[in-house]
């Protein structure tokens, strides 16, 4: 991420924000296009979609043996890419947590699967597929897990209604 100022002997290099922890630092230094942020004291890595699996492998090699969770957020129209895929990692040996996030577009959202790296991501990715419709390439068995097999629609998307049945004397479910 370096900008050239025009003249040869003045090169302005933007200082990339890097975490203090040495293990995380070396992990981020390996990848140039990944942004590090601190969200309420937790390290978050924004990874471009094409490098998702690659970053995952490096993270595992750096000591993050456990993939705690894979989930998604549907940002509807608030962001250019509709879905945000979030994977929480845990390193038991170094006592560290790391969150990696990436985005997936509105049409045919698809991300590489983390199952070849961490087998424990299997059910979590199936749940994201079931609830959001995001496909994971390389997943051994991407089928619906929580809803019946013939269910249509993806419930946790924002345009899927709650499905509530009208109840006498109660006008709405939405609070605010």
């Amino acid at each position: 991420m370096s900008e050239e100022n025009g003249t040869v002997d003045e090169v302005v290099v933007e200082e990339r924000a890097l975490p203090e922890n040495t293990i995380l630092r070396s992990l981020f230094e390996e990848f140039e296009d990944i942004i590090w942020e601190l969200s309420h004291g937790q390290d978050v890595a924004s990874v471009p979609r094409e490098r998702w699996a690659e970053f995952g492998e490096s993270a595992k090699a750096a000591g993050f043996e456990v993939c705690v969770d894979v989930t998604a957020v549907d940002w509807m129209r608030q962001r250019p890419d509709r879905f945000e895929i979030v994977a929480n990692l845990l390193s038991m040996q170094h006592r560290l947590r790391l969150r990696m996030i990436t985005t997936a577009p509105r049409e045919e959202p698809s991300v590489a699967s983390l199952v070849p790296i961490w087998p424990g991501a299997n059910f979590a990715e199936r749940e994201v597929y079931d609830m959001f419709g995001v496909t994971f390439e390389g997943h051994p068995d991407l089928t619906r897990i929580l809803m019946p097999d013939d269910w249509e629609g993806h419930p946790l998307r924002k345009d899927f209604g709650v499905g509530s049945v009208p109840v006498q004397f109660k006008e709405s479910n939405r609070v605010s």
């Binding site: 809803m147 419930p155 899927f160 209604g161 709650v162 499905g163 509530s164 049945v165 109840v167 479910n173």
Partner: peptide, 8 residues
Amino acid sequence: GGMFNNYA
């Protein structure tokens, strides 16, 4: 249906 008045 209890407190869960939803699709599921």
